[in-house]
């Protein structure tokens, strides 16, 4: 028996919305530690990794590890039947082929239940090594979204150059070029607006804006996004879902290489 209750159902809706344009079908793995998911997009260029620790949930029970094979578009459609303020409980029997979704209004006056068919999905699970990154930029997630959107008007590849006191996003395209520099800024009174740079050595890498744009669908999940970079290894864009329990949504994208 698996049962997990999202006290704030909106978080689940945002998580699914942040993954559904990259990943069509995926296995959500449930175990005694929590819920996790790892999937590549269809062209295997990027990877999405979700971790929701059991402490994140209002209540969590998982007697035996199970994988829930889901079509994210269908999942998202059913989740549209929930109200923003609802608590959402997911339930599945061991060896069952349906996922039960229960939506409860805040005052408990409305309870709805939906069943969704599960699928058998062959998924390739990749081992992601622990990496010490040369540069980690933590910035307001809305700022990252805006930069990706704005620079996407000019071109399709963004250069991200990280130095001690600032990070530069630059783009060149047919109609011209542009760049945005964010300086390190530790807004003590408003930590959500801070830009922090942890640097071991300066890093300059290029990435496809099309993918970064899909990553920013997670903006609503967290006021801050972090970009972890090292030469020749994939960039990690992380949105913390819950700081206290180390629950997160991460996206990986390899840097573009010159030919």
């Amino acid at each position: 028996m698996f049962e997990a209750r999202f006290e704030t159902g909106e978080t689940l809706i945002k998580i699914v919305d942040a993954m559904k344009e990259l990943v069509e079908d995926c296995n959500i793995d449930c175990s005694t530690t929590g819920m996790s998911m790892q999937a590549m997009d269809q062209s295997h260029v990027s990877l999405v990794a979700l971790m929701l620790q059991k402490e994140f949930f209002g209540s969590f029970r998982c007697d035996r590890s199970i994988s829930l094979g889901l079509n994210l578009l269908s999942f998202s459609k059913i989740l549209k039947c929930a109200s923003k303020e609802d608590a959402i409980t997911l339930k599945a029997e061991d060896g069952g082929d349906v996922l039960t979704l229960m939506f409860e209004s805040k005052d408990g006056s409305r309870v709805s239940e939906f069943e969704m068919k599960l699928m058998d999905i062959d998924s390739e699970h990749l081992g992601i090594p622990e990496t010490e990154y040369k540069a980690v930029v933590t910035m307001p997630s809305g700022e990252f979204q805006r930069i990706v959107r704005d620079l996407g008007i000019i071109g399709d590849t963004v250069g991200i150059g990280c130095e001690k006191d600032g990070v530069r996003f630059s783009v060149t395209g047919d109609l011209g070029s542009g760049n945005v520099v964010l300086k390190q800024n530790t807004s003590a009174d408003k930590p959500d607006l801070a830009t922090l740079i942890e640097l071991e050595e300066p890093v300059e890498l290029s990435f496809a804006l099309r993918y970064l744009s899909l990553f920013t669908k997670a903006t609503g999940l967290s006021p801050q996004a972090s970009l972890s970079m090292s030469p020749e290894v994939p960039l990690v864009v992380e949105y913390k879902i819950d700081d206290e329990t180390a629950s997160y949504l991460r996206y990986y994208l390899a840097p573009k290489v010159d030919e």
Partner: peptide
Amino acid sequence: KGGQKRMDSFFTMG
């Protein structure tokens, strides 16, 4: 893909 490496070339199957 031109200039873009796939994820499988960085992370091992496991």
